[in-house]
Amino acid sequence: MPKVISRPAPLTASALLQLMWLASPALPVGGFSYSEGLEAAVESGRIDGEASAGTWLVDQLRLAQARADLAVSAAAHRAWARGDAARIAELNDWVRMTRETMEMRLQTEQMGRSLLEWLRTRDAGAEAPDARIAQLAALRPAPTWPVAFALAVERSGAPLREALLAQAFGWAENMVQAAIKAVPLGQSAGQRMLARLVEAAPEAVDLALACTDGERQAHAPMLAILSARHEAQYSRLFRS
């Protein structure tokens, strides 16, 4: 008997457009208002130009995003697809409990709540409302960003890897814009930084896809220290 090779579902035009929408800075979730410690890194002198900002963000993508938010979104996407409410609650709790500062926790909760409202708006008037949106809303004290994003991309019908690439790109674009404002840098420098992040994104996504529960972690000591300092930073543009 010939071997059957399992291939992922193709990315349809509709699903592609949904991913572009979800990755867009125009998505009303407030991602543009956070720098995730980058502003504090500028204040402390660890970031002083395009090269250091680009290196900081590539490291953050590989060491923090790939092993935490992207990995959670991958696991949550699978859980939403099979209707595993207990697993969703477990992942949501993990995100909250591993946020090392108050502003990091508030960011993931605020963005999660905002995406929930966007999903509610999209689902309003549907002939068959998606009961999973109510499950997302029931997470306490709030749905977190990677868990909410996982539901949004699962509803799009896009393959998981492409969904995580969209998530990584959306994060990268927001962070590059934060660097342009905080360092500050020009638009051309921002595009060069974004090119570095785009090159690094597939490897980060593949790491997230392969990440087991035992390997998933959100421990980034210097990022946590800078985030804690940012909470009391005298002058700042961003909420984290």
Rank of each mutant, 00 (worst) to 15 (best):
R161L: 01
V183R: 09
L209V: 04
A150E: 10
L209E: 02
E203Y: 00
A163N: 10
G214D: 08
D213P: 05
A201Y: 04
Q191C: 03
L194T: 04
R161N: 00
Q177N: 15
Q167A: 07
R161I: 00
E162D: 15
A210E: 08
A158I: 01
S156A: 11
A218K: 10
L207Q: 13
E154S: 04
M193T: 10
V153N: 01
E154N: 12
V205T: 07
G170K: 10
V183D: 08
A201F: 02
E173S: 13
V176D: 05
R155A: 15
P159N: 00
P159C: 01
F169A: 11
A158F: 01
P184R: 04
L194E: 12
D213N: 07
W171L: 13
A201K: 02
G186Y: 11
E203I: 02
A218V: 04
A208G: 08
G186M: 11
A208E: 00
A210T: 01
A218W: 06
L197Y: 06
L185A: 06
A208L: 00
G190C: 08
V176I: 15
E199H: 11
F169E: 07
L165H: 13
E199R: 07
A195L: 05
A178W: 11
K181C: 09
Q191T: 06
L194C: 09
A178D: 15
A158W: 00
D213E: 10
A172E: 03
V205H: 04
P159L: 01
A166Y: 15
C211G: 02
A163D: 02
M175L: 09
Q191A: 11
P159I: 00
P202F: 02
E154C: 12
P202D: 07
D206L: 03
W171C: 03
G170N: 03
L197G: 14
A200R: 03
A178T: 08
A150Q: 05
P184K: 09
A150L: 08
L194V: 04
I180R: 13
M193C: 08
E199G: 04
Q217E: 14
L151N: 11
S188Q: 14
A166H: 03
L151Q: 14
L151A: 14
G170H: 09
E203D: 07
W171K: 05
G186V: 09
E199V: 03
Q187V: 15
L209W: 01
R192K: 14
E173A: 14
R196P: 01
Q217C: 08
G186E: 08
E215R: 10
V153K: 00
A172P: 10
T212D: 07
V153A: 02
A204N: 06
P159T: 00
Q187Y: 07
L209F: 02
P184M: 15
Q167F: 15
Q167S: 12
A158R: 02
E173P: 01
W171Q: 07
Q217A: 13
A189G: 09
A158C: 12
A152F: 13
S156D: 12
A152S: 13
Q167D: 12
